[in-house]
């Protein structure tokens, strides 16, 4: 692996760490899903594709933090599955955290574009 690839891979890991909690809460908004369904959902998106070894401990943590909850359900003829859903607390924090995310994304976008134009002007004067 070249230094460039190493850096990019590390950046991906760090970035995912911070965003996956929000992603999972957002996926569970309005739908109850079991682990494999959640995993398949995330596999539709390149930057949030994760493995079981990441997903389940994360679900466990979010559950302990009280933003999601789970219960076992058994459909007829199928094996029992543990379904996850947002809790009341989860419903409450999701909009605020989402707004923070959007603000952060907009800020970063602005920085990537070279920063606020008046700052650039002030520096050159």
């Amino acid at each position: 692996m070249t230094d460039q690839e190493k850096f990019e891979a590390k950046w991906d890991v760090q970035h995912r760490k911070g965003t996956l909690e929000l992603v999972i809460m957002a996926v569970l908004k309005g739908r109850d899903l079991y682990g494999l369904q959640l995993l398949n959902f995330l596999h539709e998106f390149e930057t949030v594709t994760i493995t079981e070894g990441t997903l389940y401990p994360l679900l466990d943590r979010l559950k302990r933090e009280g933003v999601i909850d789970a219960d076992w359900r058994q459909e007829e003829g199928a094996r029992p599955r543990k379904y996850y859903r947002l809790t009341e607390l989860g419903e409450k924090v999701l909009p605020t955290v989402s707004a923070r995310w959007r603000k952060s994304a907009a800020d970063i976008e602005c920085i990537l574009e070279g920063g606020p134009s008046d700052f650039n002007k002030a520096q050159s004067n």
Partner: peptide
């Protein structure tokens, strides 16, 4: 839960996946 997941994935993905692939994904 993990057991249920493994069997679900085996059923869903059939020949595309082996048990050791799935266990590798769990780490």
């Amino acid at each position: 839960e993990i057991e249920s997941h493994i069997y679900d994935r085996l059923e869903e993905q059939g020949a595309e996946v082996t048990v050791s692939d799935i266990l590798d994904d769990f780490g």
